[in-house]
């Protein structure tokens, strides 16, 4: 017992070294269990986004294809934290990183089952995407979330930001396009691979490595992290 007590300080170095080694073996942002290997792009749209895995339409992607980092943002149109992130944080990310060509931004739908109208909202957004109005409709859906989440009148929120002609096209697509949910299904499949447990969740993709950040992130700390990622 006594000899054990004497050598214990020395023995304690072993787990410490193992632990430090294990921590240092990680890249600053990588977790091998969460890395999803890239697969060849499946669609024409996906050919422009080689860093991502799911087949996605171009209207969900913004920023320069030359950007070394892609931020994949999983949101649910009816989730209040997503609303806060979309309206408060995302404009700053777009201004400082997307517009400057540093980061590509990819919106991904992750419709939570407990939300009653999120599927309808996502259909409207994706229908708007088909006619090149995804961003403006997504913005309107988040801005008016508190209204349509109560009464289910998604159409009214969209009607405020589209011209009558575009609104009619969107309504028709929402009613008739059987493939309108395809990108949502692909996004959710990718979300399952990313082991998503909440929205909003960002997946930062760099050099094929996918790093998941779950929950609402304030811009100042997100900025510090993105700057670090871009420098590394």
């Amino acid at each position: 017992m006594r000899s054990f007590l004497l050598v214990r300080p020395a023995l304690s170095v072993i787990p410490a070294l193992l632990l430090v080694g294990a921590c240092l073996a990680q890249t600053p942002a990588a977790d091998p269990k969460k890395v999803v290997p890239n697969t060849p792009p499946k669609t024409t749209a996906a050919k422009t986004t080689p860093k991502t895995t799911a087949a996605v339409k171009n209207y969900k992607l913004t920023g320069s294809p030359a950007a070394k980092v892609t931020m994949e943002l999983y949101t649910d149109f009816e989730c209040p934290s997503c609303r806060e992130f979309f309206l408060k944080v995302l404009p700053e990310v777009e201004r400082d990183y997307v517009a400057t060509g540093k980061i590509q931004l990819l919106h991904r739908d992750f419709r939570l089952p407990q939300h009653n109208y999120t599927k309808v909202a996502a259909r409207y957004a994706n229908a708007a995407g088909q006619i090149g109005q995804y961003q403006i409709v997504a913005q309107a859906l988040f801005a008016k979330q508190q209204d349509w989440a109560q009464n289910g009148n998604v159409d009214a929120a969209v009607a405020k930001v589209l011209s009558p002609a575009d609104l009619e096209k969107v309504r028709n697509l929402v009613k008739t396009d059987s493939h309108l949910d395809d990108t949502c299904v692909a996004d959710e499949a990718q979300g399952a691979k990313d082991a998503l447990s909440e929205t909003p969740t960002m997946v930062i993709v760099k050099d094929g490595k996918r790093t998941k950040i779950g929950g609402f992130v304030q811009y100042n700390i997100l900025k510090a992290y993105l700057d670090q990622i871009l420098k590394s």
Partner: peptide, 27 residues
């Protein structure tokens, strides 16, 4: 160990969710 396996931003998000630390302390 489990915190260090994740990016520091993830822990900063957890800290932030308690709404107790000033923003400049999170990082």
């Amino acid at each position: 160990y489990f915190k260090l396996r994740e990016p520091w931003l993830q822990f900063a998000v957890s800290l932030s969710s308690f709404k107790i630390l000033p923003d400049e302390w999170l990082e």
